[in-house]
Nucleic acid binder design. Structure first.
Lengths: 208, 208
DNA sequence: AGTATGCGATAAATAAATTTAACACACGGG
DNA sequence: CCCGTGTGTTAAATTTATTTATCGCATACT
């Protein structure tokens, strides 16, 4: 059995600098809500009906499905019993990589670490778009042997400043500044400042 | 992987008529606590150490292990991450029938239903002792063709009254009364009162 | 002995999950 | 059109999980 629900972003996920409402549950149940919604809809039940049969309230279901609360195991069990589905099966529900939508910071895949650190969102075997969280320590450099690959890439500087060279052009980008270019042009990132630089970037098709 | 912890009864489980402290969590996490204790001890961690590493408190671990609180999924996840063990694996941990110790009322196995209802504790493929919860509607009868099997059985009347015939002897037992006999003697239970009768009984080796 | 440390358990305080009660929206009939 | 019923969401109240702080009990070391 496999998850294949349609996910909707409740708040705009594009506003890079806006406040992100952190979940109050310390852990990462980013999937749990979607899973529950999926199995519920798969069972053809409304939140209210499921709630009534499970002996909980529809509000609880709603909050759980939207990851606004992390159910206690006993509640979850009560709920799943009416599906019916065991906790075992519920947690064993595979979320295939190609349908993953949410990723916790801790789940980002490290592609490079050291003075230059690249953290990738998701598994590129299933995607054509590569999203990276890049951290450059002061002095860090992608190397004088310029990068070149068959992609298009862009990004926005989140913190600090970076010197970007693309072909013949060179510029220092500060927090808020952005870039976008054809990766076949030789390019190079270099943190010439004294503070760490953080960039969120994208690349398609994925590099490496 | 399989559970094989040693279980200890906190309160005497023998006092048939004493108040049983119901868990405050509506569900049935009767296993969860033992499972967590098992995996924790298996990892060679104390409650305090596990708690510290998981970012929760030792008190929480203690309460969870004693089934005095049902953790939220996010808490449980944080805890399992230090073992390390996935939620999937945690819930997939099989509790083999032969090591099951606790059974919720809803888990008792119905052997007979109708005017005479037998609910069995556990799976007799793994046990030599059969515990039954028996309910006799008014007038209910195990039948004039007397029962006979190679066992020893006994029980205590919990509610109502029952007429028990064993061999040539016949008697009416009321709430609190008990019986114990060799099942090779032909026997028969009959509710001759106007109220339902409830009996808790045991049989070894199991009958059917 | 005395004292220190580690263990698990528990009472009271706090944070979070859950309920209660309401809102907003969509759909179908009178 | 208005009303009734269905949906999912959300604020405030309540219940429950979790923390903070403490206890009692071991074991080990002066």
């Amino acid at each position: 059995m496999v998850l294949s629900a349609i996910f909707v972003f409740k708040h705009s996920a594009v506003m890079g600098l806006c406040e992100v409402s952190e979940l109050n549950n310390g852990g990462d149940d980013f999937e749990l809500g979607s899973r529950l919604r999926f199995v519920r809809q798969n069972a053809g039940l409304s939140q209210r009906e499921l709630a009534k049969r499970a002996g909980v309230t529809n509000a609880a279901i709603s909050l759980i499905e939207n990851n606004q609360s992390s159910p206690s195991v006993s509640s979850l069990k009560k709920i799943l019993e009416v599906i019916p589905m065991s906790l075992t099966d519920f947690f064993a529900l595979e979320t295939p990589e190609e349908s993953r939508v949410f990723f916790k910071a801790s789940e980002l895949v490290p592609l490079a670490s050291g003075p230059v650190e690249f953290l990738q969102v998701g598994d590129m075997r299933h995607h054509n778009l590569q999203i990276l969280y890049e951290r450059y320590a002061p002095g860090a450099d992608t190397g004088r042997s310029m990068l070149q690959h068959e992609s298009e890439e862009g990004g926005i500087v989140v913190e600090g400043a970076i010197e970007l060279t693309v072909g013949e052009r060179k510029q220092i980008l500060k927090a808020g500044d952005a870039y976008l270019f054809d990766s076949r042009q030789p390019h190079r990132f270099r943190n010439v400042g004294s503070d760490e630089c953080v960039i969120i970037s994208a690349c398609t098709p994925p590099y490496l």
